[in-house]
Design a protein around this nucleic acid. Sequence first.
DNA 1: TTTACTGTATTATATGACTAATACGGTCGT
DNA 2: ACGACCGTATTAGTCATATAATACAGTAAA
Lengths: 139, 139
Amino acid sequence: MISFDTFRGTEGTPIYQQILLFIKRGAVAGTIRDGDELPSRRMLSALLGINPNTVQKAFRMLEDEGLITSQPGAGSNMTLTPQKLDALKEELLKDDIRSITSALRQMGIDREEALRLIEENWQESEEEPAGSGEGEEHE
Amino acid sequence: MISFDTFRGTEGTPIYQQILLFIKRGAVAGTIRDGDELPSRRMLSALLGINPNTVQKAFRMLEDEGLITSQPGAGSNMTLTPQKLDALKEELLKDDIRSITSALRQMGIDREEALRLIEENWQESEEEPAGSGEGEEHE
DNA sequence: TTTACTGTATTATATGACTAATACGGTCGT
DNA sequence: ACGACCGTATTAGTCATATAATACAGTAAA
């Protein structure tokens, strides 16, 4: 069963998108694997303190993308193939990397300073994990 | 007069926030300076193809933050001090850097790969400037 | 089989973002 | 003074997000 321990709100972005991102990133990281069972919509909505319909929307979109399979009565499970994972990783990385380079460029930050800033913050967030569920959801 | 040549929509984020970011980042970059005149709300809304009220909302928030000053009849001008610029730079950098490190970490990317990805994309976006107005808005 | 959970669907309401259409008064150049 | 532009304000409508309250059918374990 997938754990949502490390779920953190991404500020202003819609909740259903946060759920999408959380699961997709987990899949890319390998902490969420093919066949893994997801918490039920009602369960997850209670855990996150949000409306069941919001969870339903996210799960519906995941199913439309072919990343999960749901059956009435039974629950929902991840359906991941290496191909999907590759596509997912490229999609997510492309968006994230593009946005940060665009942002730093607009602020007149040069390549060296950009790399330095990332490296600095990497260490800080290592000391203060800001959401360390240890990633031990499996077996 | 500030130029909005390089203005690009940041996908799904609200337009008024995009305007805020564009101006703030320009200020941090030094392409928008103290005393600079902004285009009128009507002019800018026409240029961007959006509603005047949306521009008004952004300008209103900029004024609430003390970054611009407006007078009925006359236009609006930037009111930047070194202190404001420092605070602005730190605020923007903190948000951007934090979001990218958080995203890459959630995907299981390590420090070396993160730096490599940024560096790669930096060069690509250098060849294909993705919004190069030459930044010659001044004097 | 009954009970308790699943996924799924529907209708209603509230709020924020954005658009639209106006209106009022201040400033500036002629 | 006049006209063309400024900032400012108000009211209304649309759309997406999120909540709320149900309802129905399928599955699984007791």
